[in-house]
Design a protein around this nucleic acid. Structure first.
Length: 495
RNA sequence: GCCGGUGUAGCUCAGUUGGUUAGAGCACCUGCCUGUGGAGCAGGGGGUCGCAGGUUCGAAUCUUGCCGCCGGUACCA
């Protein structure tokens, strides 16, 4: 008879979710700390809201279907009410503002945390990911939007990304809408067609200008032979859109002049251009010129809730993708003005504007640039336990080191000394301390430079015995000089 | 969601036209070496061949369905 198999639980992880190891957590914390300082320098303060919200407050409840929108993680709570994990930090912010009408306005806050979406995971794309937002609620002044652009610039520069390696690109949804009005012949274009046109413009960087032309018209067949139906615009309408997308100007102000002509008689269009002009003036006044912030008619930023200016921070240096093609790293910041978000709670217009960092993407960028420390270990010193009857003494040693603000770990496993050194090595320690009866009698400790040791070990030949006797990376110190000696070794590596 | 690829040990992969007990390298563990990380040598653990069904005397291999992963596409607050 076959042995009965124990039923074991298979370790599994939810699709699109990640375990984040020490190096990445620490790197992310360092990055977040740097950005937080920039936000605070502008006067933004922190806010935390819960990960779970009532679905209707997130604005994703479908009353007809009597259930939440697909695309969010939702469940019925114990009272049979739909509850969901937040899918961004902006919806909770508007809920918070609506619940706290006495907040001084403009209300300015930053928030960092994980958000959740039920989407197909892809490269660099997860179902749980971090966002880091800052927003100003309660002002319709374009100064606020201009400031968002400045904050993005400052944050990227604070992270060590050099001017020229990034750009903030600015546009205005009202200008986009003005163009749609124009091709509608003065009348409002059918909403779904308008959406489709915006979606198509959003694809510009992937399908190119010719692809956009095809998608605006009859449709497009891609490399795989897949056919995608187009927006069915007329040739003259397409021309207007393409003309708009190709608009250029020497400066932001020049481009505004060009855009003004393109939107023609459209009132929203003119309004949008006027907003861009105000932002330009504010930015120029603050010294943020065209080398950092440009107006880019191709920026759409999804179909979201944006009502006015939209902007994105992109990294312009190129990276080689998996296919071996060099391409721009892409967008790491995105944001814009959303004037209608609080209204659904209070009925009052509460103008707001802000931006959000894709934390994971930006972190990936910093890693490829080598601009972030990803060293995983927190510990610097391992005190080994050669002789288990000396535990008290070992504990004194780590206590002394810790009191001197040195990260010190006492080996708490049960392995022999050889394994202890391997452990020290595997966990990235810089210094190993050994003290057996020999040392104790002499009032000494042995201190080993583990990093030097690993270098020297490369030269060991067959003569292991001699190597062991000499221990060139090791020296003895007076027991009383423990802290000082450890500091000396750590100092060699700037730890 | 749709299209394509793929799934064998912790990792990277072999596994010939279906045929004994499924292999290698790396990693891991033990010993040589009970006071020192590497190398070497010797040994060891670890796989219901993604899951379920079908064909067959016999399936990792052929077949169907499902799932996961990777890539593209759609969507993207």
């Amino acid at each position: 008879m076959a042995k009965k198999k124990p039923t074991r639980t298979k370790p599994r992880r939810l699709k699109g979710f990640r375990d984040i190891d020490a190096g990445d957590v620490l790197a992310r914390d360092r990055m977040v700390a740097t950005i937080r300082k920039v936000y605070e320098r502008y006067g933004y303060g922190p806010l935390e809201t819960p990960a779970l919200e009532y679905v209707d407050c997130l604005g994703k409840f479908l009353p007809e279907a009597d259930q939440p929108d697909a695309g969010i993680f939702a469940f019925l709570d114990e009272d049979d009410v739909w509850v969901a994990l937040r899918y961004d930090l902006t919806a909770p912010l508007s809920r918070y503002v609506a619940m706290n009408p006495d907040l001084p306005r403009p209300f300015r806050r930053y928030q960092v945390g994980p958000v959740y979406r039920v989407e197909k995971p892809g490269p660099g794309r997860f179902r749980e990911f971090y966002q880091f937002d800052f927003d100003s609620v309660g002002t319709n002044a374009m100064l606020a939007d201009a400031e968002c652009c400045m904050v993005m610039c400052d944050a990227l520069e604070a992270l060590g990304i050099e001017r020229g390696d990034y750009a903030v690109r600015l546009n205005d949804r009202k200008v986009l809408n003005g163009v749609l009005e124009t091709i509608g012949g003065g009348k409002e274009l059918d909403a779904s067609i308008g959406q489709n046109v915006l979606r198509t413009i959003d694809k510009l960087d992937r399908v190119g200008i010719d692809g956009v032309k095809q998608l605006l018209g009859g449709g497009r067949k891609d490399e795989s032979g897949d056919f995608k139906a187009g927006c069915q615009l007329s040739a003259s309408q397409i021309e207007v859109v393409i003309g708009y997308l190709s608009a250029v100007g020497e400066t932001r102000a020049d481009l505004c002049d060009v855009l003004e002509k393109l939107v023609g008689a459209s009132e929203v269009g003119r309004e949008g251009v006027d907003e861009l002009r105000q932002i330009d003036v504010a930015l120029t006044g603050a010294g943020y010129c065209d080398d950092r912030v440009t107006i880019d008619p191709t920026v759409v930023r999804g179909l979201a809730y944006y009502t006015g200016p939209v902007f994105e921070g992109v990294l312009t240096f190129s990276v080689v993708d998996d296919a071996g093609v060099a391409r721009e790293f892409g967008s790491v910041f995105g944001g814009g003005r959303y004037d209608d978000l609080v209204k659904r709670f209070t009925g009052q217009e509460v103008p707001a504007t802000g931006a959000s960092i894709g934390v994971d993407r930006l972190l990936a960028a910093l890693k490829t640039l080598g601009k972030i420390d990803t060293s995983p270990t927190m510990a610097a010193v391992l005190v080994t336990r050669l002789d288990k009857t000396l535990n008290t003494e070992y504990q004194k040693m780590v206590a002394e080191l810790r009191a001197a603000d040195i990260n010190a770990e006492l080996y708490i496993g049960n392995q022999a000394i050889a394994k202890q050194f391997k452990y020290a090595s595997d966990t990235g320690k810089t210094v190993g301390i050994v003290a057996g009866s020999d040392e104790m009698e002499a009032g000494e400790v042995s201190i080993k430079d583990l990093r030097l040791g690993v270098e020297l070990s490369k030269e060991i030949g067959a003569d292991r015995k001699q190597w062991l006797e000499q221990q060139p990376a090791q020296f003895t110190a007076k027991r009383g000089g423990l802290v000082e000696s450890v500091k000396e070794v750590l100092g060699r590596y700037g730890v």
